[in-house]
């Protein structure tokens, strides 16, 4: 049952002399919703960028569905500079580009919305289907891939129906209200047919009602698409409501992990991040 989908193993990310992520270890199991929380600058997004191939970690490895997809060890100047642990344990270099990681079955959204601004809602999702297209440039240009194209369009239509954006499908992506842009970005990630969905602060800038809708939406798509969800978030309501497990990061280091109840009562987490609750 609890098959590991994502495993981050001894990952350290060091920029020059700054250790942004320090010896991070975490696991996400199939079907779970797991949250990564922590104060600003704790290295949450950096961890995401390492997992999705945007950054190459300084040391450590990332496993996805039982397969090692990222691995690195300190090289060149970094050999002398390296401040982390587990030096010398990793020898191989595996550095896939983000598009490869996505095609392996991991899709993400961004902290500040990154939609394709000049495209319609429909096209935004249709473009995300491109990575699953099998036609080459000739068959695509000369319309020999009609069947695939029609299939893609049908899928996009169905997806828009499920996420409730079908009424605005011909509008420009940027003309949507903020909450729906967030929803569109998640739908776009779903179009890439991921097994693991990574959400970077999906509720950032949302009002309480929008946040509530989003919470329901995330659980709903998890069940419908049989997803595993790994998210970064500051809205504690959302995090405590939907996550099964939580990892807490502070100054690049993992300071706690556990169920929402355990995290809420963890002294280190309260000191570092949550603060004393109930007397605000």
């Amino acid at each position: 049952m609890s098959e590991t989908v994502l495993k981050v193993e001894n990952v350290t990310m060091q920029f020059g002399g700054v250790v942004a992520v320090d010896n991070l270890n975490l696991e996400v199991n199939r079907g779970e919703i797991v949250a990564l929380i922590g104060p600003n600058g704790a290295g949450k997004t950096t961890a995401f960028n390492v997992i999705t191939g945007v950054y190459q970690p300084t040391n450590g490895a990332v496993w996805f569905q039982g397969e090692k997809i990222v691995e690195n060890h300190p090289q060149g100047k970094m050999k002398a500079l390296y401040k982390g642990e587990h030096a010398g344990e990793y020898t191989a270099v595996l550095a896939p580009t983000p598009d490869r990681v996505t095609r392996l079955g991991m899709a993400r959204t961004f902290q500040n919305i990154r939609l394709w601004k000049s495209q319609t809602v429909f096209d935004n999702i249709l473009i995300a289907k491109h990575c699953r297209a099998t036609s080459n440039v000739f068959s695509a240009a000369f319309r020999l891939n009609r069947k695939e194209e029609a299939e893609q369009r049908e899928n996009v239509e169905a997806l828009l129906e499920t996420v409730g954006l079908v009424d605005v499908k011909n509008e420009l992506a940027t003309s949507l209200p903020y909450g729906r842009q967030r929803r569109l970005e998640i739908a776009r990630a779903l179009a890439a047919e991921p097994k693991l969905l990574l959400l970077d602060e999906p509720a950032a800038g949302m009002n309480p009602q929008e946040t509530e809708e989003l919470t329901a939406f995330i659980s709903e798509i998890r069940d419908r698409f049989r997803l595993t969800v790994f998210l970064i978030e500051h809205h504690m309501n959302l995090v405590m409501n939907i996550s099964e497990r939580i990892y807490v990061l502070d100054f690049g280091k993992l300071i706690a992990q556990g169920t929402p109840a355990e995290i809420q009562n963890d002294k280190r987490v309260i000191d570092a991040y949550l603060g004393v609750s109930g007397d605000a």
């Binding site: 999705t52 945007v54 580009t97 983000p98 598009d99 490869r100 996505t102 095609r103 899709a107 993400r108 961004f110 990154r114 939609l115 394709w116 601004k117 000049s118 495209q119 096209d123 249709l126 473009i127 995300a128 491109h130 990575c131 699953r132 776009r188 990630a189 890439a192």
Partner: peptide, 19 residues
């Protein structure tokens, strides 16, 4: 369409599986 995605936002295009 993939070309236009690269034009509009390279980072997003790469994250959505466009090489």
């Amino acid at each position: 369409r993939a070309f236009k995605a690269i034009r509009d936002d390279e980072v997003a295009a790469e994250a959505m599986g466009i090489n």
